[in-house]
Design a binder for these strands. Structure first.
Length: 423
RNA sequence: GGAGAGAUGGCAGAGUGGUCGAAUGCGGCGGUCUUGAAAACCGUUGUACCCGCGAGGGUACCGGGGGUUCGAAUCCCUCUCUCUCCGCCA
């Protein structure tokens, strides 16, 4: 949520920059402005009346003490009238506040200056590319390999739960565990603190990171307890900092967490969602950083380097793209995607998304730091990224490293898997 | 699941209808003293919004929501959470 004050102080700028996200904010901003003028006026009136009531109440108290009962009763009558007026004003005020909030929630985050124009993924900007040559190898796609080596069973998952819930078996299961450990260890080395958060969150947390109220359909909802299965560890981890005021010198706060991720997303059908490409449950290691506003873009680059290091160590061909306005998420100011090339599918698979949300999330979370100089509380910047999501990494490993002897395991993973090949 | 107790500022903890945004202690910050530090002493120390160029003033907040009252941290209702005991259990 864009902070109200910032929005009103930078109206034209916000409207201009939201156009990069193909969002026309002019009407909403106008409404917010009008309602805010009314809100201020209403609050001033309400506060004045409340002050009067408080004053009279004090007087009544001392009148009673002095035994001047008649005078006190007189005053009481007047307060009845006052209270009616106050009640009316307070209703108006809370209505206005609610209306402003509802409008504010509609506005996507302001994209960073460097965000390229564009409609969709085809307009994203390739920042750099790395790893061994990215070419199709005419190999088997991972869903065939999974069956060949009996390491991932999609049909069995269908039977137990439904589509999008595969069963990993034998070396396939071990490979999952290996990747999770590898990713966590790498994050630890890079200075992130490990946490293992709850996998169900309450409504407040869903609201804090922006899944609620409008993206409710993307999460699995446990109705009896009104809890939500986490769509990413970002939700529980970022909410550690809900309603928190940090000292300036405590920034940055760097966290990493593994969690299974549950996503209902209906999505499209066909090749894009085959096999491991899109699942309802998958595993991911996430990195989350709370940073000083002055340093958040430096931090974003650091996080990107960390993620890049992971795909490099896994020997996968990759590229980094900066998302264009049209392809960015609602709450992001700048996002890099890291994609690995799948040789058998002959396409790029998104394995990580690293974003700076600036103060958009922090505003909802009420996550602030105390400025050392001014002693004022300012909103922090929040950033996060996948480091990494497992399924597409597994897909790429299977497809890119298939040999006649079996699937070759990248060197860095061997200490974790305990085997060199999946045969 | 059954029975009981409780939720107050960064923490501990007092406050059972007006003098309470809230005693006191600890912690934090500033200062005096000291070569420096500690101790001691003095001062200061919540958040948000509104009015004001500013100085300053106002309002709200004692787990959440609602009610009684001229007036609520304090009384009533309700929800959530925590603790203790019993039961069950990885």
């Amino acid at each position: 949520m864009i902070p109200l004050k910032y929005l009103l102080d930078h109206k034209e700028e916000v409207i201009q920059r939201l156009k990069v996200k193909h969002f026309d904010a002019s009407e909403i901003v106008k409404q917010i402005e009008e309602k805010n003028v009314l809100r201020k006026k209403t609050q001033a009136e309400t506060d004045a009346k409340l002050a009067e009531l408080n004053q009279i109440s004090k007087e009544i108290g001392s009148l009673f003490k002095q035994g001047e009962k008649a005078k006190a009763e007189e005053q009481k009558k007047y307060t009845l009238e006052l209270k009616d007026q106050i009640q009316e004003l307070q209703h108006q005020l809370s209505d206005l506040e609610k209306q402003i909030d509802e409008l504010l929630v509609f506005l996507p985050n302001i994209p960073h200056n460097s965000v390229p124009e564009g409609k969709g993924s085809e307009d994203n900007l390739v920042v750099r590319q790395g790893g061994v040559t990215a070419e199709p190898n005419n190999g088997l796609p991972h869903w065939d390999l999974a069956r060949k080596y009996d390491i991932i069973d999609f049909e069995l998952g269908n039977k137990i739960t439904g589509s999008g819930f595969p069963v990993y078996k034998g070396k396939g299961a071990k490979l999952q565990r290996a990747l999770i450990s590898f990713f966590l260890d790498e994050a630890l080395k890079a200075g992130y603190n490990e946490v293992l958060p709850p996998f169900l969150v309450n409504e407040d947390s869903g609201f804090g990171t922006g899944q609620l109220p409008d993206k409710e359909g993307q999460m699995y909802h446990v109705q009896t307890d009104n809890l939500f299965l986490v769509p990413t560890a970002e939700v529980p981890v970022t909410n550690i900092f809900r309603d928190v005021i940090l000292n300036e010198e405590d920034l940055p706060q760097k966290y990493t967490a593994y969690s299974p991720c549950f996503r209902r997303e209906a999505g499209s059908y066909g090749k894009d969602v085959r096999g491991l490409n899109r699942l309802h449950q998958f595993d991911k290691v996430e990195i989350v950083v709370i940073e000083h506003p002055h340093r958040s873009y430096e931090q974003l680059e650091q996080m990107l380097l960390h993620v890049e290091g992971l795909v490099q160590k896994l020997e996968l061909p990759y590229r980094i793209v900066k998302l264009c306005g049209g392809d960015m998420s609602f709450s992001s100011a700048l996002t890099y995607d890291v994609e690995v090339f799948s040789m058998a599918q002959n396409k790029w698979l998104e394995v990580s998304s690293v974003s700076n949300f600036e103060n958009f999330q922090a505003n909802r979370l009420k996550l602030r730091y105390r400025d050392k100089e001014t002693k004022k509380n300012n909103l922090c910047h929040t950033l996060n990224g996948s480091a990494l999501a497992l399924p597409r990494i597994v897909a790429a490993i299977l497809e890119n490293f298939q040999t006649e002897e079996g699937i070759r395991i990248p060197d860095v993973l061997k200490p974790y898997t305990g085997f060199d090949y999946i045969k």
